[in-house]
Design a binder for these strands. Structure first.
Length: 561
DNA sequence: CGGGGTAACT
DNA sequence: AGTTACC
């Protein structure tokens, strides 16, 4: 008997709403008042005035969500902003385009959850979902259970008395009591297996672990979540989606196929619009009902697709790799394990959309703003609490979408990222100006080529190829022992590239007085040389650093005490 | 739809 | 390096 993994899928209920705008009562049909209370607390903490008034959160042209006062008046989610404003002139609009708070809270919950999972086996999916591999914790506790059997306790006693599940190998007091003969939360398909031993017992324990972790997250962090427990990521995620919010569901593998068969294939994770369309086209291609059957009317349940198609059809239409993967998915097979998400992101990007950008000066202004945000993100997200770099992006990428380049199509160009980005001796504004003139604008020229006119509706700036920095010694005395020349150490690996190779010329008449040319040798020296006037000294320990590093640095002191 | 993210293809 | 699919 091969032991299956025990996987938990978590997602934060209505995360976007509660974090970005502290919207109360997002769960109108919820019978527990836990959410209402929590949302009210969050709201009072954030912005008490919003509670009494009708307000909505917008992203660009649409209302993405709104509070219950607004809903009572008839405001709808996904309504066009113009319509809503026309209909409700006094509706307060909150801009939900900045995801900063959402990102911060997401990260906090991720770290908090990861600390509870042995080996840190937690994978993040998007901003509001986590996969946890708790197999090792389950196995350890099953072993404890078995050894207590062996030591003479009766079977009956073991089954009826609560079992203490240990969440720590070191501290035997950390954990929770749970029954072995019943699951926590809901059971997918409503069917309980007859055999509560073997792999099924592992899932029963998994349900209790899931419940414990969710309780901790609610009690300590104040967020409700929905959980799914099963033997792989896909089944766990789908199980978790069946009972929301603030609930959990365990899916036993013997019922997995029945469970899956009733779903539309589009509801299976990793089968998006594109794949669904390809699959249905392949299945229904020859059928002469093109005239009377619209795309929406084609039966697309997992059951039907499984019986009308086969693996060969999938492989033929989707390609070997995807075809096989998706076909297996329809049968509850998902061999992709939990891939622990690194602390260091693989890319950081900022984007914005517009009605139309047609001149270089407009593009320049937007790129300045985006570049500033990006640099801020790089300095916050890629630096630890000591102000040391966790990683160095080696490439910068500019992406656009033009009005003519239909639909979701994007075009991008990239180049190496100058290391002035990591310099601690220049202000953020200085670096931004440098980047815009020396890098982003030339990349933009490269992108649009020789054309005289352009019409840009989207700009995205990103850093990618983030190279992990060698781990610094965590010797705390090395930090507190004030090294006056600490900043010089950091500067050693900052080397300046000759900016000549990135000289794609800017089309048009666009010129800037400041950085119209490459730096002189002297100025290059200046890039890496120290500028005493621009850094600051920590009042607590005396370490010197740039002001942006000081922000993170002070958080270090806050954590310490 | 939006603003970010990841990974796999070509 | 750039695109596409997914969440």
């Amino acid at each position: 008997m091969s032991k299956s993994p025990v996987i938990i899928a978590l997602d934060w209920d209505a995360f976007y709403c509660s974090v970005s705008s502290s919207i109360p009562h997002v769960y109108c049909g919820c019978h527990t008042n836990t959410n209402t209370n929590r949302a009210a607390q969050v709201e009072e903490h954030f912005n008490p005035e919003l509670k009494k008034i009708a307000f909505a959160v917008k992203q660009k042209g649409i209302i993405c969500t709104c509070n219950y006062v607004a809903r009572a008046r008839g405001v709808k989610k996904l309504q066009m902003l113009v319509d809503a404003v026309k209909q409700f002139p006094d509706l307060v609009i909150v801009n939900g385009e900045d995801l900063s708070r959402y990102r911060d809270a997401s990260k906090e919950l991720w770290y908090f959850t990861r600390d509870m999972v042995w080996g840190g086996k937690v994978e993040r999916l998007g901003f509001d979902e986590l996969f946890l591999d708790v197999t090792e914790m389950i196995d350890y506790n099953i072993a404890l259970l078995d050894s207590s059997h062996a030591s003479g306790e009766s079977r009956c006693q073991v089954d009826s008395a609560p079992f203490f599940f240990r969440m720590s190998k070191e501290d035997e007091s950390v954990g929770f009591s749970c029954p072995l003969s019943s699951v926590a939360g809901n059971v997918a398909t409503g069917c309980l297996p007859e055999d509560f031993g073997g792999d099924n017992l592992r899932l029963v324990l998994g349900s209790h672990v899931c419940h414990y972790i969710r309780s901790q997250i609610l009690d300590i962090k104040g967020y409700t979540s929905s959980g799914g427990v099963s033997i792989n990521k896909t089944l766990a995620k789908m199980a978790g989606a069946t009972h929301k919010p603030n609930q959990q569901t365990v899916l036993f593998p013997e019922f997995a196929q029945d469970f899956l068969d009733s779903f539309d294939i589009g509801r299976i994770p990793w089968i998006g619009h594109r794949s669904k369309s390809i699959i249905l086209d392949a299945i229904y291609k020859g059928s002469a009902d093109v005239n009377d059957t619209t795309k929406e009317e084609r039966d697309s349940t997992v059951f039907t697709v499984r019986h009308l198609a086969n693996k060969h059809l999938f492989v033929h239409s989707l390609g070997q790799s995807s075809g096989e993967k998706l076909w297996d998915l329809l049968h509850g097979i998902d061999p992709s394990g939990v891939q622990p998400t690194s602390d260091i992101p693989t890319q950081i990007s900022i984007e914005d959309t517009f009605k139309s950008l047609t001149s270089l000066i407009e593009v320049h202004n937007v790129l300045s703003r985006l570049s500033h945000s990006l640099l801020e993100r790089v300095q916050v997200d890629l630096m630890d609490l000591n102000g040391d770099w966790l990683g160095h992006p080696r490439t910068m990428r500019l992406t656009t979408r033009t009005r003519s380049s239909g639909y979701g199509t994007r075009i991008s160009r990239s180049d190496s990222l100058p290391s002035i980005v990591f310099s601690s001796s220049h202000s953020r504004d200085y670096i931004v100006d440098y980047l815009v003139d020396k890098c982003w604008m030339p990349l933009f020229s490269k992108l649009i080529g020789d054309v005289k006119t352009f019409d840009i509706v989207l700009l995205n700036v990103a850093v990618v190829n983030i190279e992990k920095a060698p781990a610094k010694s965590s010797d705390i005395t090395a930090f507190f022992g004030k090294k006056k020349h600490n900043h010089n150490d950091q500067l050693q690996d900052v080397h300046i590239e000759k900016p000549e190779h990135k000289k794609a010329k800017v089309v048009g008449e666009y010129v800037r007085p400041g950085f119209s040319d490459g730096l002189t040798e002297e100025e290059e020296e200046d890039v890496i040389s120290d500028d005493d006037s621009s850094d600051e000294v920590c009042v607590v320990c005396g370490q010197r650093m740039m002001s942006f590093a000081l922000e993170a640095h002070m958080r270090f002191h806050d954590f310490g005490e």
